[in-house]
């Protein structure tokens, strides 16, 4: 059973009285443990679909099923709790809490409620993650004392600390140089293999897209390519998009 099912999801934004469609009814599924890339140029709807999958935005229509649960109609409180339990986030601008140090930033999600990590294991689990992202010597530093790559490593550790089923990363390498960006993607891939966490990241970097084992390519709010391990599994939108172009 897929961990994520996106069914005919549409999202419209309003600029005054003008309706701007960001997603035009897209559908796809993601399998548990996949390393998924959502690719496409700027304005294609990558961030919008990630926000919807991340439950921080709601679709105008359509359905989203995560881990077998239909998220339609959930209250803000339920969505927040669901996010905390199931999802981890990595942001383009790292988005660390500036007043907390590395250790505290990683620890932060654990302090917000029930997680899969027993309290007795918190310390060792955080230390493990800090080691895994190579920041042992930086554990007491504040974000403004770290480089971009280091900050993104902290964000990765923070996203993983609650042992979420899914980690969403919105253009995680956009603010990094290419070498550091590749290192970050390698690290995410490594964790994906070791912990079997589903990773979904958006990017417009072709080099990074190819590392993914499932690629969903968007253009103008539609899926134009849906390829898993070399196999095209859905191309209907691609034809539509090509016809429109």
């Amino acid at each position: 059973m897929p961990i994520i099912q996106v069914i005919d999801v549409k999202k419209d934004y309003y600029l005054g009285n003008v309706v701007v469609p960001a997603l035009r009814g897209i559908s796809f599924s993601i399998e548990r443990g996949d390393f998924v890339s959502i690719a496409g140029p700027s304005g294609s709807g990558k961030s919008t679909i990630l926000n919807i999958i991340g439950l921080i935005d709601v679709p105008t229509s359509g359905e989203l099923i995560i881990d077998g649960k239909n998220t339609k109609g959930l209250s803000d409180k339920e969505l927040t709790r669901f996010r905390h339990e199931i999802l981890g986030f990595i942001f383009q601008s790292f988005n660390l809490i500036p007043v907390l140090n590395v250790y505290e930033n990683i620890e932060f999600p654990l302090l917000l409620g029930k997680t899969q990590v027993p309290k007795s294991e918190w310390k060792s689990w955080i230390e493990f993650l800090i080691g895994e992202v190579g920041l042992t010597e930086w554990r007491n530093h504040k974000p403004n004392e770290l480089s971009g790559g280091q900050r993104q490593r902290v964000a990765i550790a923070r996203a993983l600390v609650t042992k979420p089923s899914i980690v969403l990363a919105d253009e995680p390498t956009a603010n990094l140089d290419s070498t550091t960006g590749e290192q970050i993607i390698d690290l995410m891939k490594k964790i994906n293999r070791e912990l079997e966490t589903t990773f979904i990241f958006s990017t417009h970097d072709a080099k990074i897209v190819n590392i993914a084992d499932h690629v969903i390519r968007l253009r103008d709010g539609m899926v134009i390519e849906n390829r898993r391990s070399g196999e095209d599994i859905f191309e209907e939108n691609a034809f539509t998009a090509s016809a429109e172009n």
Partner: peptide, 13 residues
């Protein structure tokens, strides 16, 4: 943005 990040991570309103 910090507020947005916190809300995304699981901080309630």
């Amino acid at each position: 943005r910090e507020i947005g990040t916190m809300r995304a991570i699981g901080v309630q309103r």
